[in-house]
Write a protein that binds this DNA or RNA. Sequence first.
DNA 1: CATTAGTTTCAATAATTATTGAAATTTTAG
DNA 2: CTAAAATTTCAATAATTATTGAAACTAATG
Lengths: 214, 214
Amino acid sequence: MNPGMDMSPTPDSPAAAPSPPFRLSPLAQAFVLHFGEMGSRWGINRTVGQIYAMLFLADAPRHAEDIADALTLSRGSVSMGLKELASWNLVQLRHVPGDRRDYYETPRDVWSIFRTLVEERKKREIDPTLTTLRTLLMEPATDASDRFAQERIAAMHEQIELLTDWYAEMRRLDSERLLQLLRLGERVVKALEFKDRMLGRGKAVTTEADHGRT
Amino acid sequence: MNPGMDMSPTPDSPAAAPSPPFRLSPLAQAFVLHFGEMGSRWGINRTVGQIYAMLFLADAPRHAEDIADALTLSRGSVSMGLKELASWNLVQLRHVPGDRRDYYETPRDVWSIFRTLVEERKKREIDPTLTTLRTLLMEPATDASDRFAQERIAAMHEQIELLTDWYAEMRRLDSERLLQLLRLGERVVKALEFKDRMLGRGKAVTTEADHGRT
DNA sequence: CATTAGTTTCAATAATTATTGAAATTTTAG
DNA sequence: CTAAAATTTCAATAATTATTGAAACTAATG
C-alpha cells in the first residue's frame, strides 16, 4: 500500500535500511539533467528544473526526501524548489493515507503546464514593461528628440498590447480547441491570402511600421 | 548634415571639449533603466538591454563611445554588448561619411524585433530540448517505469513540436498579415466554436490528455 | 609605412545568484 | 500537552555571471 515508506531505523534489523536511497533510471537521469541545464535559460534555477523534471516523469507522487535523494540535493533546496513550483501551480500536493509526509506530483495535462509557463512569463517579462511604457507615454515630451522617443515607445506598446490581447483570447480556449487551432495553422494563413486576393490587395501593401527614412 | 560628429580635439581651442559627454533625457534614461532591469528576466544581461534600449530610442545612429558615455559603461562592455546584439541581428552597422567610427542603429520595424527575439529564444530554449527528447525516445525502455516515462516524454515532445510547427507557419506571414491574424483573434475562436456546434460536438468533449486518475 | 583613432580581447575582479545545513518552526499523534 | 517527525527559514558560503580596463589588434590616413 505504501511502498516508499521508510520506517524508523531499527538498528537490530540489518535488512531494514534507514532510507532505501531513491535512484533514477539512466533515462530519467538524462531527462532530469537536461532540465537542470535548460533551467537557467528558462529563467528558473537548476534545482527547480530538476525537481520538476523528476516529478514529471514519476509514475506516482514523491515526497521531498525521495527527491533530495534522487537528485542529491539538500532538504532545504528541495523545500524551496517545491515552494517555488507550487507558487507557479506546477506541482500539486498529495497525501498517502497513514503517512504524514507531503507528496508531490505534476499536473498531468501537458497543455496546462505550457499555459502556466506562458502565463508566468507574461507576468514577469511583459506586464512590468507594459506598465513602464504606459507611464513613459504619459510623460510630457519636452523636446523633439523626446517626441521621437515617445513615438517609438508608442509603437512598441501597441505591438505588445496586440499580442497580449490575442493571448488573452487564446487562453480562453480549452485544450482541444487550442489543438484544433494549431493544426489549422496553415489553413488560416491560406484563408487570409485568399481573402486578400479577393479584395484585390497585392503584395505591394506595406504596414504603417514602414514609415520613416530608408 | 553630420551633427553628432566630434572633431579631433585640438588642444589650442579650449571650447572644443575632447568629448561632449552624451547625456540622455530623463525619459530616455527611465526607458533605458527599465530595459536594463528587465534584461535579466529576458535572458540578456543588463548592459545589452541598456544598449539596445538606447539605440531603439535614438533618432540617429550612435557610435560606441556615445553609448559608453550615456550609459556610463566601459568601452569594453559596450563592444561586447554590441557584438552580442549584432549576432542577434538586433543592431545594424551604419557609417557616416568622413567619420571612420562604427555607428549602430536598431531595426525600425518593431515586428522584426519581435520575430528576432522569438526566433532566438526558440533556438536557445526549445530546439535543444526537442533534440534531447528525441534522443531519449529512441532509447530502449527496460522496465515499466521507463516505459511510463517515455510516454510522458512523447506527450511533451508532441506538444512542443505542434507549437514549433505552428510558429514556423506563422513566421512566413509578413507583418501586415500577422497583424490581421492577431486582430482576428476573437473571430477565429468564434468560427471554431461555430464549426463545433454544426458538427454536433458539445462541451462534453474532452482531450485525450484527461486520461489517468482524478 | 609609421602614426593614430578606433575596436576587440581577456584576465582580474566585482556583483549576483544558488545552495547548503543547522536551527527554528510547524504539524501530527498519543 | 508533549514528543517525534517533517518542513521551512535564513545566514553563510559556493558557484556563476557580468564588468572593467589595460593591452593587443586593426584599419585608415598622410
